[in-house]
Design a protein around this nucleic acid. Sequence first.
DNA 1: AAACCCATGTAATAAGTTACATGATTAG
DNA 2: CTAATCATGTAACTTATTACATGGGTTT
Lengths: 183, 183
Amino acid sequence: MALEHAILVSLLERPGSGYELARRFERSIGRFWTATHQQIYRVLKRMEADGWVTAEEIGQEGRPDKRSFSVAPAGRAALVDWLRAPVQPEAVRHELAVKIRGAAFDDAAGRAALVAEVERYRATHEETLARYLAGERRDFPDAAAPDAAAALQHVVLRGGIAYERMVLAWLDDVLATLRTLDD
Amino acid sequence: MALEHAILVSLLERPGSGYELARRFERSIGRFWTATHQQIYRVLKRMEADGWVTAEEIGQEGRPDKRSFSVAPAGRAALVDWLRAPVQPEAVRHELAVKIRGAAFDDAAGRAALVAEVERYRATHEETLARYLAGERRDFPDAAAPDAAAALQHVVLRGGIAYERMVLAWLDDVLATLRTLDD
DNA sequence: AAACCCATGTAATAAGTTACATGATTAG
DNA sequence: CTAATCATGTAACTTATTACATGGGTTT
């Protein structure tokens, strides 16, 4: 019961269609909340029925019409209610950590395969960090943040950057540990 | 399709009942994979039917009997298959980040409430870090790790410690940012 | 006496994933 | 001509959460 709220925040930052929302979830919002387009369309339909969002048909030339959603007063009220409720403890799902502990029950060949996999995984996080840093340079070039929305988006982005740096350092630790096991 | 594997790793580290597994998921394993007891019982039943685990009835005095599960060869084979498969990209769900961006659409009173909530949230992470550090001192007192399982458990714990430290530093950044908005 | 721990589950609901479907346009 | 992008969805399935249920034992 929180995809609704992520959608509300995204639509308040800028109205858009289900398709556009799905693309934002792949990029910016997806840093801290993932969702597929199927899920988004389903939830948008419910939110529209509940009067949280309103749709406007936008005819386009050369491409399909789209329905652009905006947040209605009831949706904004629902968001504020949620904002003021306590933060739920996070449900962590870190598959790689399970695999690392599981590597104790595989042989040297399996651990060698895991080393290769961790290296591949590390490369994806290196790319993510580079993407975040490029986004930071593009979207927040000057030190003084102009408005509240931008300042808050920036601090969340800094969180993503800190997370990626931490992961990279930890993966180096993991690789060193895995390599000492089979010397 | 990965709770099975987290359970297999836990049972290989030490056999136990569904209840004991649920407690481990609250503590150690829960650092990187959460699950409730209802989920665990359901999955254990399926795993038993598939021949991945075997149960042994253990009669106890003064408390209910329990069924202690151990990993069968088929379960171990399934785990090794999974270990060697590529790591799936993580599905991140970070509610607090959504709330922080949402704070741009609340008023000063709402942001003050969020500051209080972030402080409370920060305190829980401070506790978690203290717990991890105490566990590290208790379970890994000497620098040289004796066996593979312990070395791997330790590197995963170090990951948890690094994560908590990163979160605490970021929350300080968040608090400073929120406070500058309403000066 | 009340609350909590041990130990196991069922049932109902909500959420999320995967596969499939359509149909036009644009870029290579 | 092929693939990708824009834009929207349905259907089937798997997973996860929440609420409820039982019953004895221990701790405060």
